[in-house]
Design a protein around this nucleic acid. Sequence first.
DNA 1: CGCGGCTTTGATGTTCATCAAGTAAAGTGG
DNA 2: CCACTTTACTTGATGAACATCAAAGCCGCG
Lengths: 229, 229
Amino acid sequence: MGKTNCSCEKCQLKSLFFSHVDASEMSNICDIKVEKQYSKGEIITTEGEPIREFIYMKEGLVKLSKTGTDGKDQIISFSKPFDFVSLLSVFSSKTYKYSVTAIEDTTVCILDLDVVKNHAQENALFAMDLMARISEATDKILLDNLAIKRKHLKGRIAHVLLYFSDYIYKNDEFELPISRREIAEYIGMTTENVIRTLSEFRKDKIIKIFGKDILISDKKRLQNISDFG
Amino acid sequence: MGKTNCSCEKCQLKSLFFSHVDASEMSNICDIKVEKQYSKGEIITTEGEPIREFIYMKEGLVKLSKTGTDGKDQIISFSKPFDFVSLLSVFSSKTYKYSVTAIEDTTVCILDLDVVKNHAQENALFAMDLMARISEATDKILLDNLAIKRKHLKGRIAHVLLYFSDYIYKNDEFELPISRREIAEYIGMTTENVIRTLSEFRKDKIIKIFGKDILISDKKRLQNISDFG
DNA sequence: CGCGGCTTTGATGTTCATCAAGTAAAGTGG
DNA sequence: CCACTTTACTTGATGAACATCAAAGCCGCG
């Protein structure tokens, strides 16, 4: 039996990779993967470049973004550990359609794309699992975008704060991993109005702000603003 | 050799289904599919209902939409022949996350979901092809949504008109398959402003309007508004 | 230390939603 | 088929939401 264990105890890709394989047939994913570290701010993949690798998030936080013809960026979504970062486009395009940038120190596992494709071709259940993960991820992005689209400025800001608090950090106090401008790029409003709204929340004692550190003091009200604003 | 021909000459699903199969192994997709007709306005699938079938568009035009908690609809995208309508969610969820409604008389081919899943499980190349189609479709939706988000009211309306003209009907004159309100639900603006903008385009001699019939008379200018508005 | 980027606040104007009111079109029941 | 109801469409007036412009403080970094 091949070794199926490596240092990555929680690796979900490993589970997917091996879950439907006869032990004797498989090569060890841990032997062929390359780990790579990125500091906050570093670009992981660039829009337009050829896709050669399959990227899997081990640690950290990244943003997916796209640059418009006018040079202005739009942030599409964020990815956290155990997401397949190169989800979008990997199986439908030869080049990246979006850029991925680390917004926290990030570790990714990199597999040669052909290895993953070959494995999927030889193992339909793995292909099915991948498909499910891709669908899930894109569904989440679409739903999130729709939710934001329904809301006004205040609701959108509340939404973003709750997103980081509830979904990413699972804590009422956290350090915003992105700038005010990036929040604006995500929700489709201007930087100034993002700042103004945060200040307003502060004045209304809904949150406390210390630079990038945010403390949500009245979550119920914030949730209310997110739901009805 | 099994029969691989049926009345659907252009069926791409059939091609996918059979492209990687040994002739002797395959069952005929044409024998197990059920064709179903929907008139303009009829609901094909409803948000929240269990997914039992794999739906493939043979003829017509549909909209994907979602109803918000406030009862207001949002239109996510449109699908035309040879799209897999149940793309989103099919492999990741037990229930539909979106509704699909015919906006033109529509014919779909319906396959039992388990049959498709089984075929994918036994045939990894088919699974890979499906994956590519799913990625492509969701990529297109995301890109379209980003493009719309970047634009103002006029740019969004121009975008929608060009979408139907260039992508759906491939003609400068066409009948709008959706109401003014539905355009509003798609671009995230109000019905009144959609109407006002269309009237303005008419006054500026960019388009001609006869009820639902639209004739684009100054495409270059419309393209310009879409690009920079 | 100075430069560029991020943040903040205020003033101003534009864009857009809302409200109102009326016409046209389309579906409904007698 | 006609009166009736509802839904779609249209235009105008008003105000709210938001973008833009301007100016200044702050912070990190070479």
